[in-house]
C-alpha cells in the first residue's frame, strides 16, 4: 500500500485489457499516414516553386515529424481519460479503494502510469512520423535530416509532450467521470473546436497572443514545430506566434495538475456507492 505498489497496480490495469495496444496501433497508422501525406505534399510544393522556398517551409522535415504530437496528442489524452472513467463505469473504484484506501495516492499512481504510457505513445508516434514521413521525404527527393540535432531534439520533446498529455487525460477523466461525455468533449475540442480557435486566433495579434495558450498550441510550442504554424490566415507573423518550448511544457503540466486536482476534490473523494 505505497506509491510503488499503487503504480505497479495501475500498470497492470492498463496492460491487462486490450485498449492500450489497439490505440497504439491506430496512433501509428494515423500519424504515419498523416506524416507521409505531409511529406509528399511539401516536397511537391518545393518542387513546383523551385528554390524559392516560403520561409515557413524551410524546416519541412520538422513540420512532418512534429505530426507525431500535433496530430497524435489526442491518443494519450484519450487513453488517460478512458482508463480513469472506466473505473467509474465498471465500478472498479470499489475494489481499488478497498485495496488502497489512500485515494490521493491511487490518483497520483494513475497520473504517473499514464505519463509513462503517454511517453510510450510518443515513441510510437515519433517512430511513425519519422519512419514514414522521413521515408517519403527521402523518396520524393527531400531531405530526411536524420543527422540534424534539431530533428532529435524535436523527437525528444514530442515524447515529453505526449507524456504530459497522458497525465492531462487522467485529470480530465477525473473531472468528467462519464465515459461517453468525456469522449465527446475530447473529440469535439481537439478535432474541431481547438483547430478553429487557433485559426481564428491567428487573425489578430492580440488574439494570437491568447491563442498560444490553447492546449494544442502550447503542446506544439513545446515540440517546436507544427503544421498549424504555417496554416494561419494572418500570415507567418501572427500564426507563428508561439510560446517558448519550456513555457509550452509548463502550460501542459499546469493543465494536468489543475485538472487532476479538480477531479480529486470533485469526483475522486466522493462517496463510492
Amino acid at each position: 500500500m505505497n506509491l510503488v505498489n499503487a503504480t505497479r497496480a495501475e500498470f497492470s490495469k492498463l496492460l491487462t485489457v486490450r485498449l492500450w495496444w489497439i490505440l497504439a496501433i491506430v496512433l501509428f497508422v494515423y500519424v504515419g499516414f498523416t506524416a507521409g501525406l505531409l511529406a509528399g505534399v511539401f516536397t511537391g510544393l518545393i518542387d513546383s516553386t523551385g528554390d524559392q522556398l516560403p520561409a515557413a517551409l524551410a524546416d519541412v522535415h520538422l513540420i512532418v515529424y512534429s505530426s507525431a504530437s500535433s496530430i497524435g496528442y489526442v491518443f494519450p489524452v484519450l487513453l488517460g481519460a478512458l482508463v480513469t472513467t472506466s473505473e467509474f463505469r465498471h465500478q472498479t473504484l470499489t475494489p481499488t479503494f478497498l485495496a488502497n484506501p489512500r485515494r490521493g495516492q491511487v490518483l497520483l499512481a494513475k497520473v504517473i502510469t499514464l505519463a509513462v504510457f503517454g511517453a510510450f505513445y510518443g515513441a510510437v508516434a515519433v517512430a511513425a512520423s519519422v519512419g514514414v514521413g522521413g521515408a517519403v521525404l527521402s523518396v520524393t527527393g527531400g531531405d530526411a535530416m536524420l543527422d540534424s540535432e534539431d530533428t532529435w531534439l524535436l523527437m525528444a520533446r514530442a515524447v515529453v509532450a505526449m507524456a504530459l498529455w497522458g497525465a492531462v487525460g487522467v485529470g480530465l477523466g477525473a473531472v468528467v467521470p462519464n465515459q461517453v461525455a468525456v469522449i465527446v468533449i475530447l473529440l469535439a475540442f481537439t478535432q474541431f473546436l481547438e483547430p478553429v480557435l487557433r485559426l481564428g486566433a491567428s487573425v489578430w495579434e492580440w488574439t494570437a497572443r491568447l491563442g498560444q495558450y490553447l492546449p494544442g498550441a502550447a503542446s506544439d510550442a513545446l515540440v517546436g514545430a507544427s503544421v498549424f504554424s504555417i496554416a494561419g490566415p494572418g500570415g507567418p507573423s501572427a500564426s507563428t506566434m508561439m510560446l517558448e518550448w519550456w513555457q509550452g511544457g509548463l502550460v501542459l503540466l499546469a493543465m494536468a495538475l489543475v485538472a487532476t486536482a479538480i477531479g480529486y476534490f470533485t469526483t475522486w473523494k466522493r462517496d463510492v456507492t
Binding site: N5, A6, T16, R18, H90, P95
Partner: peptide, 21 residues
Amino acid sequence: SSFHPGRTARDHLAIYATAAA
C-alpha cells in the same frame, strides 16, 4: 459487478494483490 469485463479473473485479482502488497 465491480469488474472490468475485458479482464480475466486472474488478472483482476492480481491487480489488487499488487496494490495491497
